[in-house]
Computed example of a mutant assay.
Amino acid sequence: MGHHHHHHHDENSKNMGFAFFLNLSFTIVEIIGGLLTNSIAILSDALHDLGDSISLGLGWFLQRFSNKEQTNDFTFGYKRFSLLAALINSVVLIVGSVFILTEAIPRLFQPESPNATGMLMLAILGVIVNGAAVFKLRGGDTMNAKVMTWHLLEDVLGWVAVLIVSIVLMFKDIPILDPLLSVGITVYILYNVIINFKKTMILFLEGVPEEVDMEDIQQKLLDITNVKSIHHTHVWSLDGEQHAFSTHVVVTEDVTKEGTYEVKQAIKRIIQAYHFSHITVEIEYEGEGCIIEHAHQHE
């Protein structure tokens, strides 16, 4: 079973590598094409693709990296590096989108005619290349692979839009369509990136993952028989998928060994629902004082 799983990860990583090189070489073609055809819509899509290439590259590299086992320097393993990749990529895309908007918005007022035939050829290529990458990556099970597939699918849609606009421009001279499409694509990218950026940032700063209800967990723990109070309860996420939980539970001083065991079992049952990958529970007896508080007092 373990062997099969490992093979699956290799497959995932290979597909990401393929999608990365495909995307990067195409991005270069696209930037040149956008400049030659004088189409700001193609340039904004090139930016989108460049962002995707960076995230595919980082994702691919980190996918291989994050599967490494924990070390003495990184006791939680390398999962957090994929969050770092998401963060860097978001910043790149936000900066790029703002730059494209400063180029595209003035063009709404002074539209220039792009080369429609060139646009059409690039758009057909775009649909094929990104379509191939989506086909390669679909079915990936990590957050990383899912986000990438979604990115590439958006690219395909972006190219379909460029395709339609270029066909219209071949028959009708409506130069404003090009910057309009560009602003549309860019605003859409920005909107999605900012939502993801916010989520990534919260996880990066060790915020509680949105699907975990802290109050609910604390209340349930306090309802356990023989539990007097809890403190130092923490929940954080390693990479958006694997979460960690730790808490100190104070039990009544006259509780038996069996009683303590029952408390632990009850805690396990409550926490199980959340699928934490790291759990630490410290049991303390009433009047014993907390190990952390003691440490502070002696400083």
Rank of each mutant, 00 (worst) to 15 (best):
L50F: 15
H151W: 06
I224V: 14
A85L: 06
N192I: 03
H4R: 07
Q242C: 09
H7R: 08
E258V: 11
G158S: 15
V98P: 01
E154Q: 10
V227P: 00
L87C: 00
T37F: 01
E258S: 13
D254Q: 11
T260A: 14
N12R: 09
L238W: 06
I271M: 10
L50N: 07
P106L: 09
I174E: 07
I224P: 00
G33C: 09
A123F: 03
V235N: 08
A161L: 10
Y274L: 07
D254T: 15
D216S: 13
S13F: 10
D213P: 02
E288V: 11
A41R: 07
F18T: 13
S277K: 13
Q297S: 13
G126Q: 03
A19D: 05
A116V: 03
A116R: 04
G158Y: 04
V250C: 00
G158E: 05
P179K: 05
G77R: 06
I194E: 03
L36I: 15
I88R: 05
L58R: 04
C290D: 12
F21Q: 05
P106N: 10
A273F: 08
N144V: 05
P179I: 02
M1S: 12
N226V: 03
W60I: 05
E282V: 01
T149W: 00
G51M: 10
I167L: 13
G57N: 08
I279V: 15
I267Q: 04
K68Y: 12
T186K: 01
R80H: 13
G57R: 07
H275F: 08
T117A: 11
G126E: 00
I54P: 04
L101C: 10
V98E: 01
H5E: 08
I195P: 04
H275A: 13
V281A: 10
V193N: 02
K257T: 12
F61G: 06
V156C: 09
N67A: 09
H9V: 12
S246Q: 12
I230E: 03
F204M: 14
P175R: 04
V129K: 00
Q110V: 12
K198R: 12
G59M: 11
W60F: 15
L62I: 15
S55C: 07
F135E: 03
P114F: 08
F20V: 09
W150C: 09
I40Y: 03
M170G: 03
H3R: 05
Y191C: 00
I174G: 04
I42K: 02
N15M: 11
Y261I: 05
T252M: 10
V134H: 02
V147D: 00
N38E: 09
L50R: 02
P111N: 09
I164P: 00
T225P: 14
M16E: 10
I124C: 08
A116G: 07
I167G: 03
H8K: 10
H296C: 06
S53T: 15
L84D: 00
G2N: 14
E206C: 01
T252V: 14
Q265K: 15
Q219H: 11
E262N: 15
I94W: 07
T149Y: 05
S182G: 09
K199G: 06
H243E: 10
G17P: 01
D73S: 14
E69I: 06
V255F: 02
E258G: 08
K14Q: 11
A133R: 01
F245C: 05
I40D: 07
K228C: 01
A85M: 06
T252F: 10
I224T: 08
N226C: 05
Y188F: 14
I291C: 12
K264G: 12
I185E: 08
L169K: 04
G34F: 06
E241F: 04
G287W: 10
